[in-house]
Computed example of a mutant assay.
Amino acid sequence: MSDYQTLSFEQTGAIARITLNRPDAANGMNATMTRELAAAAARCDVPATKVVLITGAGRFFCAGGDLKDFSSAPSRGAHIKGVADDLHRAISTFARCDAVVITAVNGTAAGAGFSLAVTGDLVLAAESASFTMAYTRVGLSPDGSSSYYLPRLIGIARTKQLMLTNRTLSATEAADWGLVTEVVPTDTLAARADELAEQMAATSAGSNGGVKTLLLDTFGNGLEQQMELESRLIAARAESADGREGVDAFLAKRRADFA
């Protein structure tokens, strides 16, 4: 089920399940975990994988970087740069792959754990989950794409509040702010995540990838550039097997089979 030391990885049909698996260290990110997460992300970036489900083992989703691990490195800066680079490689792969990424936040998401949690295309949170940046509390600055995603999700003012004051958001507050898709009872999070993963596995991976591409580029493009991207992508989808199946199924009044 797993070829990793700090993660568990399970592939069931079109669904890949990744569990951050250092519960005794609050699933803190050390060099091994971010390196393995990047490798797992690359493993998911294939047509056969339509959904990636990311969660944490134990009480924490992820408490951020493993400061004890960082402090023991001969060069803290060089060590943290390598950890961040691997994490960023993983996040970039997840963002640009066709698979729908679901993050199931089962507990505290702090620092890089917060950053990773909100990169999900769909973000589920247990009622007991909480979210805090926590970087400046230890004299560091944000990583894990949070300075990219948070301003786009909640605006600059709220981003500054989270990053400068280290305010902790409950799951409900995170949903109200637009960081979380759905809040569910803690004891039903895993079941709801599996249900959502199965639902998305029945959809078209190419169409989902098109949505992700359009939305990832939208803030960097002008109107005409974005519309040209839209027209090219929808034309490509119309010629694809999934596009043909979807239209034909609609006209025949049957359910599309995107297998």
Rank of each mutant, 00 (worst) to 15 (best):
W177A: 15
S92P: 00
V123L: 08
T159Q: 05
V123D: 02
K253M: 12
I156F: 14
T168N: 07
G113E: 06
D86W: 03
A40S: 03
E195M: 14
G64P: 06
K253A: 15
G107A: 04
S141A: 12
V101S: 06
V51Y: 00
T132S: 12
G178E: 08
G64Q: 04
D66L: 01
A90W: 01
R232G: 13
F250Y: 12
A39I: 08
A41C: 06
R237Y: 12
T32G: 08
L116R: 04
F131M: 06
T49M: 09
S207N: 09
L124M: 03
A126T: 07
A78N: 14
A201N: 05
L179D: 03
M200L: 14
R89E: 15
A171V: 03
A84M: 13
R43Q: 15
E195V: 08
V100Y: 07
A48F: 01
G139F: 00
V123W: 04
S204E: 01
G155M: 06
G243Y: 01
A16I: 02
Y4Q: 07
Q199Y: 14
A134H: 06
V51N: 00
G111L: 00
T19P: 03
Q199R: 14
G222F: 05
V118D: 00
L87V: 04
L229M: 14
G206S: 09
